[in-house]
Structure formats: structure tokens, C-alpha cells
């Protein structure tokens, strides 16, 4: 600020009314978070590496026999993916909270519940979707029987959307707490159980040669409910964490 500035001042903007621009604000937030992930790809890789490592534990801990592994593979893959997504949730709002941009997000003249949707979408795109795409690969390691790979990916892709949305409520509630990560898991894990049940149910149906699309539809229904209800709760929890 070494140059004198008084000469270049323009008149302050006249008082205006809140207008549109919500789409632009959401798109900008989406792009900003995606750029941040692209600049630090390590953060996005961590849950994937964790997923692979947890999967490795099971043959070591139980048995390398393909028959036994095949029996537990659907459940193990789903639980491990769920835990990996959970691991990444703590960071969803923490960075923004610490640098103050979360507070600025709350001050935007747009509904907070929709702005956070952009952040949740980035979380799903950088965590849930990669997990869903990676799961079949790990399924091979666990001798997951043929015929359930598509079911695995599809249910994980939709199910992780629920996990991102519901988990964001917990992340919003715990973002201001010093040791929020552990508490976050306790708060949201019970809420993940229906998704897990229908996810593994779909795989069981696919393995039994049955119709698994019905189960996928149920997860889709859960996702729709979460899409409608969770943003309001996320916004409320962020306001509590920031302004008390």
C-alpha cells in the first residue's frame, strides 16, 4: 500500500437488493474446492490408500483361501469403503473453518444450504466416486465372485453420496471442536447403517443371481431423501459451529 490511493477511489456501490447469482456462487465454490484438491492430490489419495490397506488386512487376518474370502468380500469391501469415506469427512470443512473462508461462506447473500451442496459434491467426486471405481479392483484381491462387480461399483457410487451428505452434518457439528474427528465417527456411523444394509443386500442379490437393481433403487431413494433434508441440517450445524 505504498501508492497513494485516494485519487483512484470510485463511489461506493449504491445500496442494492439481493439478486440472483446463486448458480455462479455455487459453481465458483465447486471450482475452488476442486482446484484445491487438484493442488494437493495427496489429500484425495489418502482415503483410497487407506481403503486398499484395510482390504489387505483381511486375507492376513482371516485366511488367504479364496472360498472364505469370497464369502466375506461383499461386506468387507463395503465396510472398508464406508470407513475410508468417513476418514475424509473430518477435513470437509476444517480447512475452510481455520482460514476463515467458511465464515465468509456464511456471509454470502445466498442460501447456505445450497452453497454447501457444492462443497459436498466435490467431496463425493473426490472421495466417494474414486472409492466406487477402485472397489472392483480390490474385489479381485478378495476373490469377489463374478457377477457382483457392477453391483459393487453402482451401490458404492450412490451410497457414498448418502455418506457425503449425512457425514457433512456431523462434520459441520464437529468442525469447531479440537478433537472432532473421533466424535464425528460416533455421530454419523449409526446413520450410515441403512446404506450399508442395502449396499451389501444388492451384492447378495447379484451373487444369488437375483435382481439387484431394486436395492440400488432403494439406495437412490435414500440419496434423494438425504439430498432434500441434509443440506438444511448441514447449514444449521455450520452456523452453530461458527457463531454458537
Amino acid at each position: 500500500m505504498n501508492t497513494p490511493m485516494s485519487g483512484s477511489i470510485e463511489a461506493a456501490e449504491p445500496v442494492r437488493e439481493a439478486g440472483d447469482g446463486l448458480g455462479r456462487a455455487m459453481a465458483a465454490t465447486f471450482r475452488r474446492d476442486l482446484t484445491a484438491v487438484a493442488r494437493r492430490p495427496g489429500d484425495a489419495l489418502t482415503p483410497l490408500v487407506f481403503f486398499a490397506m484395510v482390504i489387505t488386512l483381511f486375507p492376513l487376518g482371516i485366511s488367504p483361501e479364496p472360498e472364505r474370502l469370497a464369502l466375506i468380500a461383499p461386506g468387507v469391501l463395503w465396510v472398508a469403503a464406508l470407513l475410508s469415506a468417513l476418514l475424509s469427512l473430518d477435513g470437509l470443512f476444517r480447512g475452510d473453518f481455520e482460514d476463515g473462508t467458511l465464515e465468509q461462506l456464511l456471509l454470502a447473500p445466498h442460501p447456505l444450504s445450497l452453497l454447501v451442496l457444492a462443497k459436498v459434491a466435490v467431496h463425493w467426486l473426490t472421495t466417494g466416486l474414486p472409492l466406487a471405481l477402485m472397489a472392483p479392483l480390490l474385489g479381485v484381491l478378495l476373490a469377489l465372485p463374478q457377477g457382483s462387480y457392477l453391483a459393487l461399483s453402482a451401490t458404492l457410487a450412490l451410497g457414498s453420496g448418502c455418506i457425503s451428505l449425512i457425514g457433512a452434518i456431523g462434520a459441520g457439528l464437529t468442525v469447531g471442536l479440537a478433537r472432532g474427528g473421533m466424535l464425528l465417527s460416533l455421530l454419523v456411523l449409526p446413520l450410515f447403517m441403512p446404506v450399508l444394509i442395502f449396499g451389501t443386500g444388492a451384492m447378495g442379490a447379484a451373487l444369488g443371481g437375483g435382481e439387484w437393481l431394486g436395492h440400488l433403487a432403494v439406495i437412490g431413494a435414500l440419496l434423494s431423501v438425504a439430498l432434500m433434508a441434509a443440506p438444511v441440517a448441514i447449514a444449521a450445524s455450520l452456523r452453530i459451529s461458527i457463531h454458537g
Partner: peptide, 14 residues
């Protein structure tokens, strides 16, 4: 006060 609000939100979500 914050804890009270957080517990309320969580109870409603639950």
C-alpha cells in the same frame, strides 16, 4: 448454548 443447539440438530436428524 452451542452444545444445546448441536444436540437439538442431531436429535432431529436422528
Amino acid at each position: 448454548q452451542s452444545g444445546a443447539k448441536a444436540a437439538s440438530v442431531l436429535a432431529m436428524v436422528g
